[in-house]
C-alpha cells in the first residue's frame, strides 16, 4: 500500500527551531492539508516530505510510486515558454517530445490558459498564470502523490474554484493522493479529508480535523458551516491571531 509517513520530525535552520515533533500519515487516495500562518514552517515541512531537504531528526517514509511538486513561487524556467515549461517533467520521464507537447497543450487549456499564451515566456505572465503553469507542470506527469504549496494563492476566485474542481474530481476518482499546503482555512475545508493545524514558533501540530463527507458532495453551506465551527475553537483563534485582525 502506498503511503507517506512522517514520524517525530524536527528541523532546524542554523540555531532556529523551525519544526518540532511532526507526526502524520497520508494514505493513498487521501488529501491531507496543512494549514497555518505564513512563516510557520509549512514550506519547510513539504520540502522535507518531498526529499528536497535532508531530514535531520525523525523519519519520513514515502512509498508512493511517483510524486511531483508545485512550488509556491512557481519556479518556472525563465528561458522556456509556457508549453515547454509544462512539458519539462514529461520529457524528464522520457516521454516523446511530440506527445509531451500535445499533453501539455491540453492541460494548459484545461487550466484556463489560452492558445495565445503558449509561446509566452514567464516574464510576460501574471502571477496567477505562472501558478497555473506550475500547477499544470506538476499534474501533467500524473503523479501518484502530489505536493502542493499554496498553489492557488495568486488566483482570482473564479479560477481558484475551477482548479479546485479539478482536484476534487481527481480525488473522487481515487487517481491521486495530495499533500496540500494553504493558509486559507475554507479552501482546506472544501478539499481535505484531513486538516492539520500548524502553529508557528516552532512549527508544531496543535489540532487535527477529519471530514468524511466526499469532496464532491460538499457545498458552500457545508464549507461555511464547518468554518464557523472551527473558528470558534480557541486554538484556532490563537494560531491565526494575527490574520483574523
Amino acid at each position: 500500500m502506498e503511503r507517506l509517513e512522517v514520524k517525530g520530525l524536527n528541523h532546524h535552520f542554523g540555531f532556529t527551531e523551525i519544526l518540532r515533533d511532526i507526526n502524520f500519515t497520508l494514505e493513498k487516495g487521501q488529501m491531507l492539508s496543512i494549514v497555518g500562518p505564513s512563516g510557520g514552517g509549512k514550506t519547510t515541512l513539504l520540502h522535507l516530505c518531498a526529499g528536497l531537504l535532508d531530514v535531520e531528526e525523525g523519519k519520513v517514509t514515502n512509498t508512493f510510486a511517483s510524486n511531483s511538486f508545485a512550488f509556491q513561487e512557481g519556479r518556472l524556467l525563465p528561458w522556456k515558454n509556457v508549453i515547454d515549461n509544462i512539458a519539462l517533467g514529461l520529457l524528464a520521464k522520457g516521454e516523446k517530445t511530440s506527445i509531451a507537447i500535445e499533453k501539455s497543450k491540453k492541460i494548459a487549456l484545461r487550466f484556463g490558459l489560452e492558445e495565445s499564451d503558449f509561446e509566452k515566456f514567464p516574464k510576460d505572465l501574471s502571477g496567477g498564470m505562472r501558478q497555473r503553469v506550475s500547477f499544470a507542470r506538476a499534474l501533467v506527469v500524473e503523479p501518484s502523490l502530489l505536493f502542493l504549496d499554496e498553489p492557488f494563492s495568486a488566483l482570482d476566485i473564479g479560477l481558484k474554484k475551477e482548479l479546485q474542481t479539478v482536484l476534487i474530481e481527481m480525488i473522487a476518482n481515487k487517481e491521486i493522493s495530495i499533500l496540500f499546503i494553504t493558509h486559507d482555512l475554507m479552501e482546506a475545508i472544501r478539499l481535505s479529508d484531513e486538516i492539520l493545524l500548524l502553529k508557528a514558533d516552532p512549527g508544531h501540530i496543535v489540532k487535527k480535523f477529519t471530514y468524511s463527507l466526499p469532496q464532491n458532495e460538499r457545498d458552500d453551506k457545508f464549507v461555511y458551516g464547518e468554518s464557523a465551527k472551527i473558528l470558534q475553537d480557541a486554538e484556532i483563534i490563537d494560531t491565526f491571531e494575527l490574520e483574523l485582525k
Partner: peptide
C-alpha cells in the same frame, strides 16, 4: 538554487 531544486523534484536527467 530554487531552479536546481525544482529540477531535482522532477528528476531531470543530467543532460536536461
Amino acid at each position: 538554487d530554487d531552479l536546481k531544486e525544482m529540477a531535482d523534484s522532477f528528476k531531470l536527467p543530467w543532460h536536461m
